[in-house]
Every structure is written in structure tokens, then in C-alpha cells.
């Protein structure tokens, strides 16, 4: 999921970096209002936890294995702003300790995982939660749906960034986007299931922790802006499925890309492929995208229902004081 240096062109890296910097600065500003002097220990511990949680490998029956990303999880506990900061700093620390993720690409990674994952994911989660009337099932379903949509939205933004990084003649973007979106629909289902399980455990053991984020929500995020953010994430997720089809169509985007390319003197191998005819969207692409979209939605719906049902709800009425054990 981490983008390494070298995938995106320098100008795209700088642009995403600027967007992320703005979002992070705003989150910092809002975070102080919501958590007060608890900011440092809570956000720092959440960061350590996501860091460690990403080390837990989830088997998927293949040689590769999946792991948690944690944007929606951080937002479910800390609220959108501190969640965004926690994930951002996890990415910074992963670069500084593992050399994982790349330095120039940090802005893009923050945009995908912290801004879309935490702020966008939180907006979706709260909206779904409110629509389902809150409670255990509403919270779990909200986090499951939010986790899936956040991953898809990130893949849509990545498609756009990738498209802006390379010349149209370099290769056929429809194919690569189909692969990306299909893959991320799957990765998103994994993230959704993990997030749903973790949130359900927390809701049963310490419901006050999730309510903590909800109180933050009541004071700092108006419902209108939340709906707008949730709508944006949904639109991006839908756009992910449109990306393979739209990539060859708009001339406007091409001219922007070309201007970008000339301005930054980004290399292109256009000479080699100049007379290559673009393949129109063929059957396997639309089939793959449909399967990813419909199958993913069904899987996420099933996960929301199953996780909400699998474990009997026995929420303690009095929150346990966490002192002196």
C-alpha cells in the first residue's frame, strides 16, 4: 500500500505534499481543541499501536499476507483530526526507521492513508452510524463500510496521480487502473474485516473509548461538513471504478498532463510507442471491474452483518476505570 519513491513524478509528489501539508496543519489546529493536554500520550500511543498492529500478518491462503492499515481505526478512537496526525506520524516513523514508503512520496502516502483514511473514513463511519441509529451494530457497520470506501477512494486518487505522472503514450492506462482497482477492492475487504473486528472488540470492552471520539465529533465537526466529506469519499470510491474507463477519454486531462510534462521536463518514451494504437476498453476489463465492485460491496455488506452478529453483545454499563492495575 505504501508508495515508494520513483512511482510518481516530482511535480505530482510536490503537489500531493502541499495538499497533505495543508490537511495536516488544519488537523493539528483542530486536534488541540478536541483532546487538550491528553493529545501527546493518546496520539503517540495510538501511533505506536498502529505501528505494531501492522506487524500482525493476516493469512489469506496465499504466500502473501495482509495487514491492518489503521486510518479508520485511529479515527474511530481519537476522532478525525488526531487520527490523521497519528497515521501521518506512523508514516513518518516508518520512513525514518524502516526506510519504508519513500521521502518524496510521503505526501502522497499521507494523502491516501491519513487524510482519506482518517478524516474521510471518519466522516463515512459517523454518517453510516447515524443512519443505522448508533449502537453496537451501527458502529461496527460504519467502520466496516468506511474502511472499504477509504481504501477505494485512495486507489482512485492514486490512479489520478499515476496518470498525471506519465505521458499518455507511455502505456495503456485503462489496463493498469483495472488491475489497481480490482486489487484494492480486495485489499479493502480485508481492511474492512480487520477494522470491523477490532472495533467490535473495543466496543464490547471499552465503549467509552469510541464514545470519546463521538464527543469530539459533537463539538468540532458540523453535520453538514461531515456529510460533504462522506459524500466526497463515496464519490472518489465510485470514481475508482470509473477510472479505467475514463482514463483514455478526456482530452482536457491529456493536455494538462502534457503541459505538466513539458513544464517539468519529465522524460517520456513517446518515440518508441508513438504509433501505437490505444486499445479500447475490452471485455475483460469491464468484467473485472464489475466483479470487483459488486463482489466487494456484497463482501463488505456480509462482513458488516456477520461481525455485528457473530459475537453476542454484552457491553458493560459502567466503564472500567483504568487506573492502578
Amino acid at each position: 500500500m505504501h508508495i515508494q519513491d520513483g512511482y510518481l513524478s516530482t511535480s505530482v509528489c510536490l503537489a500531493t505534499g502541499a495538499v497533505s501539508l495543508g490537511a495536516v496543519a488544519y488537523s493539528l489546529h483542530r486536534m488541540k481543541d478536541s483532546l487538550g493536554e491528553r493529545t501527546v500520550p493518546l496520539t503517540g500511543m495510538m501511533g505506536s499501536l498502529i505501528f505494531a498492529g501492522q506487524m500482525v500478518n493476516f493469512p489469506i491462503g496465499l504466500p502473501v499476507s495482509g495487514h491492518l492499515m489503521g486510518g479508520v481505526l485511529a479515527a474511530a478512537i481519537l476522532g478525525p483530526w488526531a487520527g490523521c496526525i497519528a497515521v501521518t506520524l506512523v508514516l513518518v516513523a516508518q520512513w525514518a526507521l524502516f526506510s519504508d514508503g519513500g521521502l518524496l512520496a510521503l505526501g502522497a502516502n499521507v494523502l491516501h492513508m491519513a487524510v482519506l483514511g482518517s478524516i474521510g473514513g471518519y466522516a463515512v463511519m459517523t454518517t453510516v452510524r447515524k443512519l443505522l441509529g448508533g449502537g453496537f451494530r451501527g458502529t461496527v457497520a460504519g467502520s466496516v463500510v468506511a474502511a472499504w470506501l477509504a481504501v477505494l477512494a485512495a486507489s482512485a486518487v492514486f490512479c489520478l496521480e499515476f496518470r498525471l505522472s506519465y505521458a499518455a503514450s507511455d502505456f495503456d492506462f485503462g489496463n493498469i487502473f483495472t488491475l489497481m482497482v480490482t486489487l484494492h477492492a480486495l485489499i479493502g475487504v480485508g481492511e474492512a474485516i480487520i477494522t470491523g473486528f477490532v472495533v467490535s472488540v473495543i466496543y464490547q470492552q471499552r465503549p467509552d473509548l469510541i464514545d470519546m471520539a463521538q464527543q469530539v465529533d459533537a463539538t468540532v465537526a458540523s453535520s453538514a461538513s461531515r456529510f460533504a466529506a462522506a459524500g466526497l469519499v463515496c464519490a472518489l470510491a465510485v470514481a475508482a471504478f470509473a477510472a479505467p474507463f475514463a482514463s483514455d477519454l478526456p482530452d482536457g486531462l491529456d493536455s494538462v498532463v502534457d503541459r505538466f510534462r513539458i513544464a517539468t521536463s519529465e522524460d517520456s518514451t513517446a518515440g518508441l510507442f508513438a504509433d501505437y494504437d490505444q486499445i479500447p476498453i475490452t471485455g475483460w476489463q469491464s468484467l473485472s471491474i464489475s466483479v470487483a465492485g459488486i463482489g466487494g460491496s456484497l463482501a463488505v455488506f456480509a462482513a458488516a452483518v456477520l461481525i455485528g452478529r457473530a459475537i453476542p453483545v454484552n457491553t458493560p454499563t459502567i466503564a472500567v476505570e483504568a487506573t492502578g492495575e
Binding site: M45, P59, Q205
Partner: peptide
């Protein structure tokens, strides 16, 4: 297995946040 592993992360989260509260104190 996914459920067990996720519950492990969930318990780890609760323990960590308990620790954060103690540290905050």
C-alpha cells in the same frame, strides 16, 4: 484466524490506551 488476530489487535489497543491513561496521569 482473522477473528482471533483482530481480537488480539483490539486487546492490544485497549491495553495500550490503558497504559496511555496511566502515563498521562
Amino acid at each position: 484466524r482473522w477473528r482471533t488476530l483482530s481480537q488480539m489487535i483490539g486487546m492490544l489497543l485497549i491495553r495500550s490506551l490503558n497504559r496511555a491513561e496511566r502515563i498521562h496521569g
